[in-house]
């Protein structure tokens, strides 16, 4: 576990880029579904959740990577969770300080970033085996990929559900919002549709390249 950095055959840029599309945490790994479905009822909430998660991901990946040589493997999960929970608490306070309204909108889901499997997943699968730079880039890439995925969901749901984006009305006056899209059921519909789209694109790409 200590010296498998030789595994790294990819370039650092690749570590960042893989999270955006090829190994996108939401659409490909299908991890962290709880915040994905719960807080994407508006684009603003989605982006706030995405950024908070990105911060925690980068910070926890950095921390885990820097102490990876000192942590006995019997207690590694406990240590990772401890670190993640700390960063989540810090984010929780920071969001409260930035905007109470945002904190209220995200509700319990900020605290639940702790149990977002993307974060522990990256800590265990990547950061505990790789150097600082690669781990930070991996965390950033996964975080940005997660944020983009949430934004796609939140954007679609807000646009169809309310006719607006980031609270700015975009469609014509008198547009009839589809309330179901803002309700939890709309999260499932949109996620299913987007997963379908991503799979279809991936398959199309595979048919072209070989």
């Amino acid at each position: 576990m200590a010296n498998d950095e030789s595994l790294a055959t990819t370039s650092p840029t690749d570590e960042f880029l893989k999270g955006l599309w090829r190994e996108n945490p939401t659409f490909v790994q299908v991890l962290g579904m709880c915040p994905t479905l719960a807080v994407t009822n508006s684009a603003t909430n989605a982006i706030a959740m995405g950024l908070a998660t990105t911060f925690v991901l980068v910070a926890s990946n950095l921390a885990v990577s820097s102490i990876r040589r000192f942590v006995p493997k019997q207690v590694r999960i406990v240590t990772f969770i401890l670190l993640i929970a700390t960063f989540v608490t810090v984010v929780d306070y920071a969001i409260q300080a930035i905007s109470l309204g945002l904190h209220k909108a995200l509700g319990a889901f900020i605290a639940l970033i702790v149990v977002n499997c993307i974060i522990l997943g990256r800590a265990e699968a990547f950061a505990s085996k790789n150097g600082l730079l690669r781990s930070a880039l991996d965390g950033l890439g996964m975080g940005v990929g997660f944020t983009l995925a949430l934004l796609a969901l939140g954007g679609v749901r807000e646009l169809v559900g309310r006719g607006s984006l980031f609270g700015v009305p975009l469609l014509w006056d008198g547009y009839q919002g589809w309330v179901v899209m803002i309700l939890p059921a709309g999260g499932f519909f949109t996620l299913a549709a987007l997963l379908l789209f991503v799979q279809w694109r991936k398959r199309a790409a595979k048919e072209v390249t070989p």
Binding site: I67, F70, P72, T79, L82, L83, V90, Y93, A94, L100
Partner: peptide
């Protein structure tokens, strides 16, 4: 194991306390 958990716990505790102290007046004001 002790060494790791205690030191990580200490650092984390310190981080949380300082974040709390830093943000408390702002949150109160908000």
């Amino acid at each position: 194991m002790y060494r790791t958990l205690v030191s990580v716990g200490l650092v984390c505790g310190l981080l949380i306390v300082s974040a709390y102290e830093l943000t408390r007046p702002i949150i109160q004001r908000n």
